[in-house]
Simulated scan of single mutants.
Amino acid sequence: MTTLLETRYRAVLRLLPASYRREREEEMVETYLWGVDRDLQDQSRPTLGEVASIAALAVRCRLGAPGAPRRYALLGAAVRLFALSAVLLLAVSAVVDRVLELTWAFTRGASGRQMFLTGFTGRNTTETVVAVLTWTLPLLWAVAYFALLHDHRRLARYSAFGAALPALWPLARPLTGDALPPGVPWYEASAVLLAWLPALALGAAHHRDAPAARLPAGSPGLVFLAGCVVAGGSLVLLPGAADTVWAPATCFVVGALGWLLWRARRTDGASPGAALALAALGLLVLTARVAALYPWLHVPGAGLVVGGGLGQTAVLVPLTAALAVVGGRDLARISAGTPGAVAAGAPRHGTRR
């Protein structure tokens, strides 16, 4: 006779993929019930730790654990590449913004330095701490990027979560009595998505059973440097059109177009899920682009910013659509069972740098 505790364990195990349950469910149920008095099983429940462990296993199984079905292997590859690409984009943006800000401040003499320091001083203690953390913590995106590519996964996860924390502060400001201007909450919400979706994807997809992270092309340092050159150049050449999303959107457009051209020249296939990953990142950047552009539509004299934002939007929409089409074709080819489709360009499970 099935006890209530067994029924509850089986209900929790339904979080796992069906293929995994067919092989392991009975063994797992026996393990969980081992040592529990049968007379007490109708009054017991799975512990919070057991539920969390099963949920984490379910995530690993669906994101490309060894032996996972083909569709889960593709999903895992796509989420890992999305996380890596997004972390690279955020790292480049954070470093370039702060380097240019410091360069401007310390090349304008005492007045420039005073203006820079004013952003951290003359406030109460809480606002000063928040200002310092908001300026410094995003630099951890660069730490997360290089740590991930050198297979220091725990450091990469902690760095990504730390770097994403400042995005939450604007949403908490109304609780302190500070009202946000009309339209800004939409941008703040998109900024939270742009920061936290990559951090969560990194934590979920780059688990201990996942293959080591690697770039589809180029070395980590050269790719990062190229991104900094593109982002910095876009800000220096068109400072009047630059808003908070200008540099990362430009960097994404150049990188995605370069990847499409690089992919068209390859004859041995591309990294599995790369097009889907870039399409997802493109949609995320497009959301932030539109949300950041909206408040400027009602600002007199902001024609250059509005024109630049509309131009980027006009490029991002077809580019994201093209990436989605390419990703759909890759998915169809992999679903059809093309030999090597999933494994092409991806390291074997269990490899380490």
Rank of each mutant, 00 (worst) to 15 (best):
T2M: 13
D39G: 14
L33V: 00
G112D: 05
F161I: 04
A73W: 06
V79N: 07
W259N: 07
V315F: 04
G301K: 12
P295V: 03
H152V: 02
V236C: 00
T136V: 11
N124C: 01
G119V: 03
E23F: 12
G258F: 02
V192L: 10
W169R: 10
T126K: 11
L137I: 02
A73V: 12
G109F: 04
G233S: 07
L202Y: 10
G76F: 07
L140I: 06
S234E: 02
W186M: 11
V315S: 03
P69V: 06
A274M: 14
W296L: 08
V245S: 01
D39V: 12
L16K: 07
V29L: 10
R113M: 13
A324G: 06
V290M: 03
A110Y: 11
L310R: 07
P170Q: 04
V184R: 13
E30T: 06
T2D: 13
H298P: 00
A249N: 05
R113K: 09
A288G: 13
F120W: 04
T121H: 06
G112F: 02
A110D: 14
Y158Q: 11
R21E: 11
L33P: 08
R266Q: 13
R329G: 08
T128W: 04
G350S: 06
R208I: 05
L139C: 09
A205S: 12
A110G: 05
I54Q: 14
V51T: 14
T3M: 09
T47N: 00
V92D: 11
H206E: 12
G282P: 10
V317F: 07
C228E: 09
P46V: 13
A277I: 05
T250G: 15
R21T: 07
A195C: 11
R45I: 12
I334L: 04
A73E: 15
P181N: 06
H150D: 13
R208E: 13
A292G: 09
R263I: 02
G218C: 07
P138F: 07
T7H: 15
V143R: 11
R157A: 10
V253D: 08
A131S: 14
G122L: 05
E23Q: 15
F146T: 07
L316R: 10
L293N: 02
E50F: 15
A241I: 01
S85T: 02
G112H: 05
G49Q: 10
L33I: 00
G327I: 02
L175M: 13
A91T: 09
P182L: 02
L88Y: 03
E27M: 11
